[in-house]
Simulated scan of single mutants.
Amino acid sequence: MLIVDDDDVDREHLRRLLRKVNAKVEIVEAIDQTSALQLLAEGRVFDCVFLDSRLPDGDGLDLVDRFAKLSTVVFLSGTDDKTVQNEALFRGAKACLGKGAVSLKSLNQTISLHS
């Protein structure tokens, strides 16, 4: 699984929850668009990509369609902007979660629906 998020606390929270869902899951992290795109350029493929809406070097929406071709994309947003969430779904995200709503239950539901 890949977590693309520039916030250390948010990445740590998601990493801990993912370990509770599956203790053996491999988790790779990227802190910006550049490092996420580098992983794609290296041919890395992930079952699931958790993609933050705002990154220091661009908009997370710009990455959705690139990752959605090979992976299940879960779009994470710190706001409840339905326009952005709808755009993420239109571009290929399978789910949109508010960062405040990311919990063990929501991850279990999201991963089981799309695995």
Rank of each mutant, 00 (worst) to 15 (best):
M1Y: 10
M1T: 15
L2R: 07
V4C: 05
D5V: 08
D6E: 04
D7T: 12
D8A: 13
V9C: 08
D10L: 10
R11T: 13
E12R: 13
H13L: 13
L14R: 00
L18T: 05
R19A: 12
K20T: 13
V21L: 13
V21Q: 10
V21G: 07
V25P: 04
E26Q: 12
I27Q: 01
I27Y: 02
I27H: 00
E29R: 03
A30K: 06
A30T: 06
A30W: 01
I31F: 04
S35D: 07
A36E: 06
A36H: 03
L39C: 07
L40I: 03
L40W: 07
V45K: 14
F46M: 02
D47V: 05
V49F: 01
F50K: 02
D52L: 00
D52T: 06
S53V: 00
R54Y: 05
L55N: 03
P56A: 07
P56F: 10
D57T: 02
G58Y: 03
G60L: 05
L61K: 03
D62A: 09
L63W: 07
L63E: 08
L63N: 09
V64E: 11
V64N: 00
D65V: 08
F67D: 12
F67K: 09
L70I: 13
L70Y: 14
S71V: 00
T72P: 03
V73K: 00
V74F: 02
L76E: 06
S77L: 05
G78T: 03
G78V: 04
D81F: 10
D81S: 08
T83G: 13
V84F: 02
Q85N: 07
E87V: 12
A88I: 14
L89Y: 09
F90H: 14
G92N: 05
G92H: 01
A93L: 00
A93C: 07
C96N: 07
C96L: 09
K99I: 10
A101L: 14
A101Y: 14
V102L: 10
K105R: 14
L107N: 06
T110W: 04
T110N: 01
I111S: 01
I111R: 01
S112A: 14
S112K: 10
S112M: 12
L113G: 13
L113A: 14
L113S: 14
H114K: 04
S115H: 11
